[in-house]
Amino acid sequence: MFGTSIHWTTFFYLLLDIVIVLFAFYQSQKLNRNSLKRYLYLGILFIFYNASGGFLPSNAIPGPIIIQYIITYGVSITLCVYIVYYLYKEYDFVVLAFSSSIRNLAIVAFGGFIALYLIPYLFTTSLNTARLLYTVPISIVAFIFLGIFYKRISHPKNPNLFIVRRNKLSIISVTAIALLPICTVIGDYQWITFTVMNIAFYAISIIEVDRHLFFLENKSKLYEVFLSNKRKIEEINESEVINGNLTRRETEIAVSILSKLSYKSIAEELYIAESTVSKHASNIFKKTGVKNRSEFLKRFLRKNK
């Protein structure tokens, strides 16, 4: 397409991702939502992924071809690690036991690329050999991670349709990451590889839209909570109320607290540790000027009845 190696499907995903990112940026400016930053970074990474993987490698570009492969693989690895980071930070999906799991995941991914791809290529000068030596073990690691992730969040103790939808879409995103090495081994079929990876972005985008709708549905419960952080504003429109001073995760937990759920129930419902719920709750109480859960319920639940 356009005299380059980019396939029309990849170009379509590139354009669609640009539109989504521009819309998200517009919304973040309109609603003054700093919480969308991670999503914008994710979208920008997908744009770079589609562009680099679509247009590269190209014989029209001077220099060693391996440099172009380093760029495309580097962007792909960064994107995959960031997707996992995004799921960890936005939804508190602590799948692995150690706190530095994201850092270790990045070390394994980039270290494996150097040890299993670049070094073999230097000795064999064969891209196919280097690709096979790297993608096979990475595929095994990716599917082990997928299995752990699936086991961690796929069996709800307290079914909540909002959380169930989020978890299913998150599993789709992680599955796309696990399938990427296999798609790479199969060959340079852009319509397969880029379709699989962009599904991960669209799944996360659906999660974010669903999350916003969840906030809107619960705005009556949260109105007084956010209003307490906007004392100097006389007239508050809907977008300002929804986006108060709480993070999106704190907002979700605030809804659960106002629903009179225990910290243990909230933890089970959101698939996070009870200590994590307690930490978020402390931040909520601090931001809303109350000392504890009882005072929070007394102050805000009464006003929402």
Rank of each mutant, 00 (worst) to 15 (best):
G53M: 09
C80K: 01
N59T: 03
V81L: 05
L146D: 01
V84N: 04
V95S: 07
L105W: 02
T125M: 03
N59C: 03
L133G: 06
F123L: 12
A106F: 05
V108N: 07
I65A: 13
F46P: 10
I65W: 05
Y82F: 15
V75S: 08
Y69M: 11
C80I: 02
S58F: 10
S139T: 15
S101G: 07
P64A: 02
Y121Q: 03
I65R: 13
E90R: 15
I70S: 07
F110C: 12
V75I: 15
F110P: 04
P57V: 04
N128G: 08
Y91H: 13
N128A: 12
I138Y: 14
P64K: 01
Y88M: 12
Y117E: 03
V136F: 11
V141A: 15
F46L: 02
E90D: 12
L118H: 06
L122N: 02
F143T: 01
F98Q: 10
I67G: 01
S58V: 07
F143I: 04
S126H: 11
F145P: 05
F113E: 05
L146W: 09
P120E: 10
G111Q: 02
L116C: 12
P120N: 06
P64R: 03
P62W: 00
G63D: 09
G63V: 01
R131I: 10
F46K: 07
V95M: 09
N50D: 12
F123V: 14
R131N: 14
F48P: 04
L105G: 15
F145M: 10
L118I: 15
S76Y: 07
E90Y: 00
I71T: 07
A130I: 02
G74E: 02
V94D: 13
L127W: 11
Y73D: 04
F46N: 06
Y134W: 13
S100M: 06
F143P: 08
F46G: 08
I77D: 07
I114S: 06
F98Y: 14
A109H: 13
N128T: 13
L122H: 10
S101D: 14
N59W: 05
Y91L: 09
G111W: 09
V141P: 02
L56K: 12
I119H: 11
L122K: 13
T135C: 13
